[in-house]
Design a protein around this nucleic acid. Structure first.
Lengths: 208, 208
DNA sequence: CGCCATTTACACCGATCGATGCAGAGATTA
DNA sequence: TAATCTCTGCATCGATCGGTGTAAATGGCG
């Protein structure tokens, strides 16, 4: 993978650091998360972190990039799996939405807390890093979803003039208010009802 | 208004502190915002802050409460102004959405940055304070909007079985991706197009 | 004027934090 | 074995921060 200098020494230390940093950055935010706590979480010496990253900021950016990469991969997978062959549109969209929402309570959950940290720290993150994240994360999944919707529309099942906007609307309607009402994510029936309602609003809004 | 102890002394000091704290909390977040910086922003001595608030945490909660109160008042005003008497549903909803979005670039803008801070700090805020904010802010506006939509539905212009959910959908569709694509808020035509598209998706999803 | 509450500047404390230096332990490769 | 690299623990530095004490200054009100 990432070619390593020479011999041994750093087998998974770097991975452990990034994983631990994700955990703490997600929960505590950039400023609150101390490097000592990150080192402890990663089971690594404080000093070792500076063998792999020059800076706390660089570590933060690395965490963002790697977590975004992994989550976007998973999301694209979900899109492809549910929307490549559409049989019954509403059923497939609801299943897609349920798979989508299941990420929020999966082992990828810390990522979404990290996203909230990014939104909060937006004034203190280099614009280049922001646009990179935007493009490789939400932008990528949105393009992928838009392309799937465009194909469905081509077959005449939906009337969509702006697939990107439609993709945005669908993602919003599926996620609904998971930010304000996170407790509801525990109730499976409530999740299904929320997703179904969102899909129907989307569907009847775009139905041919 | 809020009855003050006795005589003079604290005319607007407290207001200045809360206003300055809002500015800095919104931009820098709870941890990064220092009390010295807040005092400077408010044109007040560091020590004076502790004459009005026992704690940084208490100051933060006060800022949240007062800002939420004011913004919610404004939002309820907008709802009432645009949706009390509905003439042409789409036109009125679009106008409502434009007024709604205009808040994001108004002098109330710092509030929405503060909201992002709340979302990020959600693990470090007393649950009671969270539910209070949730209920008096987003919850209140949502209930108000839901009530308006319910009345419109009663007159037969919309088919809504769950007004609260419909209100949530409408707010989402109007705001669209203002979080990810904040640059678009500067372009008035783009904003109108976004709002119109959101309203139409909502409208055709709920139209009778 | 004189009482009283508030404000202010300044000094200070203890704690935390990011970051560095260093010396030694461990492991791998030539 | 010797050289090289990483990891580790520890000590430390400088800076920042939340919060307090204090004494002087301010200004309204009797």
């Amino acid at each position: 993978m990432t070619e390593r200098r020479k011999s041994a020494g750093l087998p998974d230390k770097r991975r452990a650091i990034v994983a631990g940093a994700l955990t703490l950055f997600a929960r505590d935010g950039y400023t609150r998360a101390g490097l000592d706590a990150i080192a402890a979480e990663a089971g690594v010496s404080n000093r070792t972190i500076y063998n792999h990253f020059s800076d706390k900021a660089e570590l933060f950016q690395t965490v963002i990039q790697e977590s975004t990469q992994r989550v976007a991969d998973t999301m694209v997978d979900i899109i492809d799996r549910h929307l490549s062959k559409v049989v019954d549109l509403e059923t497939d969209l609801v299943d897609f939405g349920l798979a989508w929402l299941s990420l929020l309570t999966s082992d990828l959950a810390p990522h979404f807390a990290l996203i909230r940290q990014i939104h909060a720290e937006v004034e203190h993150i280099p614009p280049a890093a922001l646009t990179f994240w935007q493009d490789s994360g939400p932008g990528r999944t949105r393009r992928e979803l838009a392309e799937r919707l465009r194909r469905v529309a081509e077959r005449g099942e939906l009337a969509i003039d702006d697939p990107a906007r439609a993709a945005g609307h669908l993602m919003l309607l599926i996620s609904a208010d998971n930010l304000t009402d996170r407790a509801a994510l525990q109730d499976e029936d409530a999740v299904r009802a929320m997703v179904t309602a969102g899909v129907r609003t989307f569907l009847y809004g775009y139905k041919r």
